[in-house]
């Protein structure tokens, strides 16, 4: 194996800063899961086609499996662990519970963060806009019906 330089990196995740040292060939997903033990972010395909590894970078949904960790210095990262505050579910999480938008749960962290970003950018999305926004997050259990309903339940609400 080629000898790689290691990088000192400061990552801001869920408003906490973490100092770590890593070679450059590691994805944000690997660092979150393996170094920071934030295993709520899932790997489903490793090639960006499923959306389970979605995290927010400066508020925008990003595939952490396609993102180099070394490129994340200075960015603000939010993972699923960062949504609930003080032991209370974020309204989007509560809506997913309330409307049964969860079955096996593996797509849920990415789906929730993608929906969260949608509602931040567009507080009153139509059903078509919701479907389009989550169309890169694949679910096998729910048929999406109740996921769409959960997001719709928040459309227009104050959050």
């Amino acid at each position: 194996m080629k000898e790689m330089k290691r990088y000192s990196l400061t990552l801001t995740v869920n408003n906490e800063t973490h100092a770590l040292v890593t070679p450059p060939n590691r994805t944000l997903l690997e660092v979150l899961r393996d170094d920071l033990q934030l295993t709520g972010t899932k790997e489903g395909c490793g090639e960006g086609a499923c959306g389970y590894c979605t995290v927010l970078v400066d508020g925008q949904p990003v595939r952490s499996c396609l993102t180099l960790a070394v490129a994340m210095e200075g960015r603000k990262i939010t993972t699923i662990e960062g949504l609930a505050q003080g032991g209370k579910l974020h309204p989007i999480q509560a809506a997913f519970v309330e409307h049964h938008a969860i079955q096996c749960g593996f797509c849920s962290p990415g789906m929730i963060l993608t929906s969260y970003a949608l509602l931040n950018n567009n507080p009153t999305p139509t059903e078509a806009e919701i479907r389009r926004a989550i169309a890169g997050n694949v679910c096998r259990c729910t048929g999406y019906a109740k996921i769409v309903k959960a997001v719709q339940s928040l459309a227009g609400e104050e959050r």
Binding site: V97, H100, P109, I112
Partner: peptide, 11 residues
């Protein structure tokens, strides 16, 4: 609501 949903939505 699904009993294990809160655990799943929080990661």
């Amino acid at each position: 609501t699904k009993r294990d949903a809160p655990l799943k939505v929080t990661g």
